[in-house]
Design a protein around this nucleic acid. Structure first.
Lengths: 255, 255
DNA sequence: CCAAAAGTGTTACCTATACACCCATGA
DNA sequence: TCATGGGTGTATAGGTAACACTTTTGG
């Protein structure tokens, strides 16, 4: 699983009918519809080595915003639902398969793109660290730390900020942190996820209790060996996304 | 302000390029983009007279689903943002001006509409009771109780259910109940809103304290006269939507 | 004076938090 | 044995829910 696909092949500026754009055509045409995704994964910080939030971006290889980094995205095919389109685009542009995928927001401001009116339906996703590690970077696909991003193409900085807010909000309430971890994990690893995402330390004792009482996890019986100290128990995630979500998720067919 | 506009003038089935639909054209065309809105208002229940949740629907005057009731909606004009389009459509079809308007979800399932692929960006709104009372019903525009709706066109039952969930969720946390009331109101009226929307009784004493400590309201100094008992204080809403929302709302320009 | 809603006070309970403490392991 | 993170116990504070009680009006 590598990140070697050509970036920007499906630009947000794609002309829906393969005709050149000019002013009169622009007014006659309906707004173009695009799907983009904000993808979060945990990777070790360069400095501390502690897990931090990263996201993959693709480089724009054509105008507008040529050379700038942007969210992976592409067109909506006739034969796929919005959610399927997001998953496929994510696969096409970054090679990643998400462990969690949810609609974020529809962005449709008039001046998001200089040349053409574009409505972007944006999803956000979480991928497991094994995925994120295997994903090789290329000239036009690169991972960035989620905080302190440089200026991105279009309104993508704003979109990432909103996705970050949503991730933090969901994590503070629902049991979604597990989607950033692998099959099995220690309670300390879950705590590290919370600390990385919410950017504050948490009491290990209380954190453990709260996790175990809201359930959604069970001990595997195994212990993580190889550490310097007492080997911690390994746990497994037992919930499913449908149950987790506080929302009566719009059904997959209609998303 | 009346509800006399022709209903269904802008159907979700509108052909973007005024050409008749057939199979090959359908595959060639991008999905149509529509804006719809779920509008909530308080009206007295027929039976008890206590305030309950209602919403206005428009009758379909063409296929598909001709004769069924549907959410007010229409096309997205080139010159307006998504939020502006929702507000204008709401005005055009029902004559109402919302006191609160927020994006709900983008519905884009493959089979939402039998003849054509349609992606609907749905908003939800609250209007004040003065607005809702003045709004005259017509042959093709009618108010319905939000609970126990009959079968609607398209996937609109599902959309209403999701909007109801969102309304209840927001009301349980944020201070948005005021948008269903008029300029001034008593604490008992606010409580009635909560009881109507959340469908459970609340202790008047505790409710009062919780409201007053989270602020967002101030006494006007006036008292509501004409009741049978001790006249209650009148209050005024002091917050604004931007502050209320727990989310860093995507800016109006990009919505 | 009585009924009923407005408004205040008090108490029990629940849960988040802080932190003292023991346990198990590598070095 | 010591250092360190894993894991448990416990006291305290803050907030919610339940409900007794006083106040103020119309009839």
């Amino acid at each position: 699983m590598t990140l070697t696909k050509e970036a920007g092949r499906y630009g947000m500026e794609r002309q829906p009918f393969a005709s050149a754009a000019n002013v009169s055509e622009r007014l006659a045409q309906p707004p173009a519809l695009a799907i983009s995704t904000v993808i979060f994964a945990l990777r070790p910080s360069e400095a501390s080595g502690r897990p931090t939030l990263w996201l993959p971006l693709v480089r724009r290889i054509r105008e507008p915003f040529q050379g700038l980094w942007a969210l992976p995205g592409g067109p909506l095919t006739q034969a796929e639902s919005l959610q399927d389109a997001a998953a496929r685009n994510l696969q096409d542009t970054t090679g990643l398969a998400p462990s969690y995928l949810e609609q974020l927001y529809a962005f449709g401001g008039l001046h998001r793109s200089p040349s053409q009116r574009v409505v972007s339906i944006v999803y956000w996703a979480m991928v497991q660290p094994t995925e994120a590690e295997m994903a090789q970077e290329s000239e036009n696909v690169k991972w960035f730390r989620a905080d302190g991003l440089e200026t991105l193409a279009f309104d993508h900085n704003q979109i990432v900020d909103y996705a970050l807010w949503r991730l933090r909000n969901k994590m503070a309430y629902g049991p979604i942190a597990y989607h950033l971890l692998g099959e099995t994990f220690t309670l300390a690893q879950v705590r590290e996820v919370y600390e990385a995402v919410l950017d504050r330390t948490m009491d290990p004792a209380n954190f453990r209790r709260q996790l175990k009482q809201t359930a959604h996890i069970e001990p595997t019986g195994e212990y993580l060996q190889g550490g310097k100290h007492r080997p911690p128990r390994l746990y497994r995630y037992t919930g499913n996304i449908a149950e987790d979500s506080p929302a009566p998720h719009p059904r997959a067919d209609n998303a």
